[in-house]
Every structure is written in structure tokens, then in C-alpha cells.
Computed example of a mutant assay.
Amino acid sequence: MSLSSHVEELKRKHQALSEQVDAAQRAPGADDLHIAEMKKQKLRLKEEITRLTAPA
């Protein structure tokens, strides 16, 4: 897998998690712990994307 396709896959995962977080936050009785974990996963993905796309 090339670097650019890997970064694109990470971006897709980040977007999917973002949508899941939004939906969970709108749901009544949402599990705050699960939402917090999804937000942490999003942050890790964003940090990885930034690390891979930063100029050398």
C-alpha cells in the first residue's frame, strides 16, 4: 500500500468515526464512555495523518 493510499484510508476512517460520534451524541441515553473512546480514536487517526503528511 502506498503512503498516499494509506493516508486516504486513515482519512476515511476518521470521517466514519466523526459521523459515528455525531450520531451517538444525538442519541438519547448515549454511552459517554463509548463516545469518549471514539473521540480518542479520532484524535489518534488525526495525529497519524498529520505525522505522515508533514513535510520532512
Rank of each mutant, 00 (worst) to 15 (best):
T53N: 08
E47W: 02
D22L: 07
L45N: 15
I35K: 01
A54V: 14
K11G: 07
Q20M: 11
D22P: 01
A23E: 06
P55W: 07
G29I: 04
T53M: 13
H34N: 06
Q41S: 14
L45W: 08
A56G: 12
P55E: 14
K39N: 01
Q41N: 14
A24R: 05
A23K: 05
K13F: 02
E9G: 10
V21T: 02
D31K: 03
Q15R: 11
H14Y: 12
S18C: 10
Q41H: 08
H34R: 02
G29R: 04
S4R: 11
L33E: 13
L45A: 07
L3A: 13
K13H: 10
V7T: 09
K11L: 04
R26F: 13
A30S: 12
T53I: 12
Q15P: 01
Q15A: 05
D31E: 01
E9C: 06
H34Q: 09
L17Q: 04
L3S: 10
Q41W: 01
E8T: 14
H14V: 00
V7E: 04
H14K: 15
T53G: 07
M1K: 15
H34D: 02
K11A: 11
Q25H: 04
K46F: 11
S4W: 01
R44K: 13
K13D: 09
T53Y: 02
P28N: 12
A27P: 05
Q15Y: 12
P55A: 14
G29W: 02
A36N: 10
V21A: 01
E37G: 08
L10V: 03
A36T: 06
I35C: 02
Q25I: 06
L52S: 06
Q20E: 08
E8N: 15
M1E: 11
K13P: 07
R26T: 14
S2C: 13
I35P: 00
E19V: 01
L33K: 08
G29D: 05
D32Q: 13
A24M: 09
R44M: 10
L43Y: 08
S2A: 14
L33Y: 04
I35A: 01
H34F: 02
S2W: 08
K40G: 06
